[in-house]
Amino acid sequence: MIRIFAWPLVAAYLLVVGLWPAAAAPVTLAFTGLGVVLAAIPGPALLLAAVITWFRHRGTQPATT
C-alpha cells in the first residue's frame, strides 16, 4: 500500500528538483541583466529621468473653490 503513494511522491520530487533550476534560470538572468543596465547608468542621470517622468505624468491638481 505504501508503494502506491511513494512512487508518485518520488516522481514529483524528482520533477521539482530537476526542473526548478532550469525554470528559474531565465528569471535570474533577466534580473542580472537589469542590474547590469542600472549599474551602467550613472545615479544622477537616473534621478533626473525619474524627476522628469514624475513632472510629466503627475496630472493636474483639482480645482478648489
Rank of each mutant, 00 (worst) to 15 (best):
P42W: 04
A49R: 11
P42E: 08
W20M: 10
L46D: 08
L15D: 02
P26H: 04
Y13A: 15
G33C: 00
A40T: 06
A40P: 00
A25C: 01
V16W: 07
T60E: 15
G43F: 14
P21K: 01
R56C: 11
W7A: 14
A45Q: 15
Q61C: 04
V17A: 15
W7H: 05
I41T: 13
T53K: 05
A22S: 10
G43K: 15
T65M: 13
V27F: 14
Q61D: 13
A40Y: 00
A40L: 06
L29H: 09
L9S: 07
L47D: 12
Y13K: 06
L38P: 06
P8E: 01
V16D: 02
T32K: 14
V10N: 02
T32V: 13
P26F: 02
V36D: 10
F55L: 14
A25L: 06
T64A: 13
Q61H: 09
V36T: 13
A22F: 06
L47F: 12
T60I: 07
I52Q: 09
A24N: 06
A30G: 08
A11V: 14
I2A: 09
L46M: 15
M1V: 08
R3G: 12
M1H: 11
V10L: 15
V27Y: 14
V27G: 10
F55Y: 10
V36R: 12
A6Q: 08
A11S: 10
P26T: 01
P8Y: 01
F31V: 07
A39G: 11
L47E: 14
V36C: 03
P44N: 00
G59V: 04
A25H: 00
G33A: 01
L47P: 04
L19K: 03
L9G: 09
L46P: 08
L48R: 14
G59F: 02
L34V: 12
F55T: 09
A11K: 05
R58T: 11
P8C: 01
A24E: 12
L14G: 05
L19A: 11
T53G: 10
P44G: 03
V36G: 09
T65L: 15
A12H: 04
I4R: 05
G43C: 08
F5V: 07
L29N: 11
M1I: 10
A40V: 01
P62Y: 02
L46W: 12
Q61Y: 07
G43N: 12
F5A: 12
A50P: 04
L38F: 11
T64D: 05
L19E: 08
A12R: 04
R58F: 10
A12M: 13
R56E: 13
I4E: 06
H57V: 05
P26W: 00
W20E: 02
A23S: 03
P42T: 02
I4V: 07
V37N: 01
H57P: 00
Q61F: 13
G18Q: 00
T32E: 14
A22C: 02
P44F: 06
L14V: 06
A12V: 10
Y13F: 15
A11M: 10
V37M: 07
G35P: 04
A24S: 13
P62C: 03
V36Q: 12
M1D: 10
L29G: 08
I2L: 14
A11Y: 02
F5Y: 13
A45R: 14
L19Q: 07
A39P: 03
P26A: 00
T60C: 06
T32D: 14
G35H: 02
T28P: 01
I41C: 06
W7Y: 14
